[in-house]
Every structure is written in C-alpha cells, then in structure tokens.
Design a protein around this nucleic acid. Structure first.
Length: 210
DNA sequence: ACATTAAGTGATT
DNA sequence: AATCACTTAATGT
C-alpha cells in the first residue's frame, strides 16, 4: 500500500509530506456502484484516490442526476476536492465507477499542510483548476451540445475510465447520467450502431470507435 | 408458466 | 428531445 501512495503521488509531493500522508491516511475500499459520498454529507476527511475511478454526479431536488465528471487515479489531480474543503457539506454525489481504493485524510491535516508544504498547496490549486475546467466542460455539454454528441462523449469518457471498450451498463443508466429518457438513449445508440460506432447487446455495449 | 427487466419502435407534442 | 403506449426478447422465480 505504501508503494502505491508514492507511485501515484510521489511526483507531486516531497518525501516529508508523503511520510505524513502515510501516517495519517486511512485506507478505504469502495465497491463498484457504492455511493461513496451523498449530498448533504458532512465532509470531515478528504479522499485521495489511490486506484479505481469515481463518478461525480449532481442530483436535483427530485433525485434526477447529471454526471459532472469522472475521477481516476491517473489524473493530473486525482481527487474530489471542490466538495471537500471548508466546513461545507457535500453538494454532489460520488459513486464508485469500479472497485476503488481511497485514502482518507483528516481535514485538519489539509489546513496544516497548506501552510507547511508548497507541493501540497500547488496540488490543491491545480486540482481546483482542473475540477473547475471539468465542470465548465459539463456546462458546455448541457448548454451547447445535442444529445447525440453528449452520448458519444459519454461513451468515450466511460471507455477511457474503465479501460475497456465493453461497457457493462444499461440504456436506463446512461439516460440517468445524462439526465434524459431511456427511449432517447436507445434511439441514439441505435443510430450509432448503424454507423458502426458501437455494437449493442443486452446489458452491455461494445464501443468500436475509441 | 408467469413476472420482471432491458430494449426497440411508431406516433404525438 | 420528451413522453406515451405498446411490443419483443432475455432473465429470474
């Protein structure tokens, strides 16, 4: 386990910080599909993603959700940060996309490290920037893109995150993530299949164009 | 055999 | 692009 912390975050942090992370971090496994964080949850510990992938959703009052972005351990700044700072409660829902492992850092340490380690400060700032960009990307998608483009982007994103061109998901789930109806997804997928971009099966989809 | 779930399709707004 | 209504196919009990 100590290996993976250094493997993933060694490029960001100095050794002293890595040692501290090792000391106070609590490792936690999250199974695929498990809700890792819910709207309204008090966030007292900040998660660093060690491996796996997490999808970040913004649910509305009715429980309808919209996918904001995925987080993976290989990302430049791999953590769900925007939601975990300050004393505020989570405004998003985080669901494990695949079996994942996170390292929980107590909130107090985050503040402490912010003044103590330059590398930590940079990491936080970069992380903020990259999350903001991802949210802007999501906004662009909703505001300026048609459903077919959004679906294609979704499929590409998902294959990338899962490292698998075979997506084990249903039309219904996709519709939920994109906040549209299953019928629309089914029709658009059919179009993609006719264009030889995907092959449809019950319960899974093979993406041809990566 | 029957119920449930996933997906396909025409018609309407 | 959304909704309705209906069908078909696969899966579960």
């Amino acid at each position: 386990m100590n290996e993976s912390i250094k493997e993933i975050y060694g490029v960001f942090f100095e050794d002293a910080l890595l040692d501290e992370i090792e000391k106070v971090g609590i490792q936690k496994s999250v199974k695929a599909g498990e809700v890792f964080m819910e709207v309204g949850d008090e966030v007292l510990k900040m998660p660093l993603l060690l491996n796996g992938a997490i999808k970040i959703l913004r649910p509305d009052a009715n429980g309808d959700e919209l996918l904001l972005y995925f987080i993976e351990s290989g990302d430049t700044c791999a953590m769900s940060f925007n939601c975990c700072m300050g004393n505020s409660k989570s405004k998003i829902r985080a669901v494990a996309e695949v079996d994942s492992v996170v390292l929980l850092i107590p909130k107090e340490k985050m503040d402490e490290w912010l003044v103590k380690y330059k590398s930590w400060r940079n990491f936080i700032l970069e992380s903020y920037q990259s999350r903001l960009n991802e949210v802007l990307g999501a906004v662009d998608m909703i505001a300026f893109k048609n459903m077919d483009e959004r679906l294609l982007a979704y499929l590409q994103d998902k294959t990338k995150i899962n490292h698998d061109s075979r997506l084990y998901t249903t039309h219904h789930e996709i519709a939920n993530d994109l906040n549209t109806s299953r019928v629309v997804v089914s029709r658009l997928l059919k179009k993609l299949e006719n264009n030889k971009e995907v092959v449809l099966h019950r319960k899974y989809i093979d993406v041809i164009n990566l």
